[in-house]
Amino acid sequence: MAESMLKVRDLSMRFGGLLAVNGVSLDVEEREIISVIGPNGAGKTTVFNCISGFYTPTGGNINYKGQEIHALADYKISRLGMVRTFQHVRLFSQMTVIENLLVAQHRHVNTNLLSGLFKTPSYRKKEQKSIDRAVYWLKKVNLLEFANRDAGNLAYGQQRRLEIARCMVTEPGLLMLDEPAAGLNPKETKELDELIVSLKEDYNVSILLIEHDMNLVMGISDRIYVINQGQPLASGTPDEIRANPDVIKAYLGEV
């Protein structure tokens, strides 16, 4: 069997005396939607932060496409093709919508300072390509008409979509979404649902998802990992998880 795209083994993260994550392992294969669920404070976001390079984990290892990444600088991790969103929107709110998408392609226009100053033909061509890609994704998430507006002035649901578009212009292999449906209304959640599935189906992206909206999670996930109090509790298909007594207990308490 081929190696998993993302392989996390025995991940642990200690903050002083607090062991926030202990012994979490997970795998993500190509073109898979994987959800991480668990009660509030279970350590889901900490797992995310470790994988995406936001924190340096205190134990375990993380392997992406055969490369150890737990000690790499953040920008190198994203250049390998892993990119994430946060629980709260983190757009560059003082930049325009399209600039948000252009700046995320910074590394694609890999030119030196001089060719940028003199706008050489190859620089122009690459810059044009970035603009084309940005426009494509703005159309895809229905934000083209707002292209020149400051990102901070968009409505909340639009900001969420822009964040996903911003991740997608980096052409990731693995997209990590931290509670993308938080604060969205049912209609927006349904659109998000369709968007996420389309990212997998049409763009061959694997998705690692933290989400509280169980309809969304159960509807789109290929597999689910449950974390409770920093420890792995269960994993399996949505049906297996739904039927797992330990999971029900963790969510509802002892009955």
Binding site: Y75, V83, F92, S93, H106, L113, T170
Partner: peptide, 25 residues
């Protein structure tokens, strides 16, 4: 206008996020 200038603005607004999007901060 320039690409580097754009990256400068992004880094000054949110350095961590800029790093996570592949900018060498």
């Amino acid at each position: 206008r320039s690409r580097m200038g754009r990256a400068c603005r992004a880094v000054s607004e949110d350095m961590k996020m800029a790093g996570l999007l592949g900018i060498n901060t």
